[in-house]
């Protein structure tokens, strides 16, 4: 196994495209190293993208934030402006594994690992994040919900790398949240995850809403029905119930060691309700931290 640590994204794409064997991108490594250790993967080269400045920085302007794909969860948490704008996204990234894992794990890695249960992905989707992709054919942008197409399957072509994510600026009366269900309080993979972002007008009527679910299908889902159930309402109990019902209806989970199908569908509704409420509180200027 070779190790490369190029300093430009173009060089990284070149290495990735040119590799005859099996090449893997190394960001935080918290999934990749485990998969190598347990013989799930046996790459011929790992390409460390952390020496590429664009993957390691967070920038912001009036339009929003650009977050490097190899920025760690711990670093996101230390970025006050991002935390104030998208607390749900920052919290989601800081639910991945332990404090130790959050010191390494990245948004790019969490998405490109290709697990339907990745915590940060529903939060990114809810926030309307776009992945900035560079490859041999140049640059392109893809909505995060379109990046993963199945378990361990991505819409990236050979040689393509996600350099960064863009998220919009926080709308005036906007709020986001991410909650997940796990059997313990920490250290588990999500049995169900739910990200919500919504926007209100001055009268408190919902003008936009996005709800995304993790671990209930072969990939994280953007549940458009749930968003529609909220838009145009005051996000009252009936609207929240309707959105929660839409969330449960969108689930197509499996029975596995982490939860049953029935349990996931039921809890998706519960989590949808709780996450909408938290996002709503934030949109209304009430702060509320989660653990």
């Amino acid at each position: 196994m070779r190790y490369e640590a190029p300093e430009t994204i173009e060089k990284a794409c070149q290495l990735l495209a040119a590799e005859a064997g099996h090449a893997r991108v190394l960001a935080g490594g918290t999934d990749l190293l485990v998969q190598i250790k347990t013989d799930v993967l046996d790459p011929s080269v790992v390409i460390d993208i952390k020496k590429i400045a664009a993957t390691r920085t967070i920038t912001s302007d009036a339009a929003g934030f650009k977050i490097g794909a190899a920025v760690t969860g711990a670093e996101l948490k230390e970025h006050d402006a991002l935390k104030a704008a998208w607390p749900g996204l920052v919290e989601a990234a800081n639910l991945i594994g332990s404090t130790q894992v959050q010191g390494r794990a990245t948004l790019g890695g969490n998405l490109c690992n290709g697990s339907p249960a990745a915590d940060s992905v529903p939060a990114l989707i809810a926030a309307g994040a776009k992945a900035q992709i560079v490859g041999p054919e140049g640059r392109r942008e893809l909505a995060v919900e379109d990046v993963m197409i199945g378990v361990r399957k991505l819409a990236l072509t050979k040689g393509e790398i996600i350099v960064s994510f863009t998220v919009p600026a926080r709308p005036k009366h906007g709020g986001d949240a991410y909650l997940r269900f796990i059997p313990r309080t920490e250290m588990d993979i999500a049995v169900v995850g739910c990200g919500v972002a919504l926007e209100l007008d001055a009268s408190g009527t919902c003008t936009a809403a996005r709800l995304s679910l993790g671990a209930v299908a072969e990939r994280p889902l953007l549940v458009a029905e749930a968003g529609r159930a909220l838009v145009g309402t005051k996000v009252d109990a009936a609207a929240i119930e309707a959105a929660a019902a839409a969330a449960s209806a969108a689930c197509r989970p499996i029975d596995d060691k982490r939860g049953t199908k029935v349990f996931r569908i039921q809890v998706a509704g519960v989590l949808a309700r709780r996450t909408i409420q938290l996002a709503l509180d934030r949109a209304n200027g009430k702060t509320g931290a989660t653990h």
Binding site: R184, D256, K257, R258
Partner: peptide, 16 residues
């Protein structure tokens, strides 16, 4: 056996 590791063999952690 499907859970031969500390990820899915869930012993209590400090926050539990």
């Amino acid at each position: 056996l499907q859970n031969a590791g500390f990820l899915d063999y869930r012993i209590p952690v400090a926050s539990d």
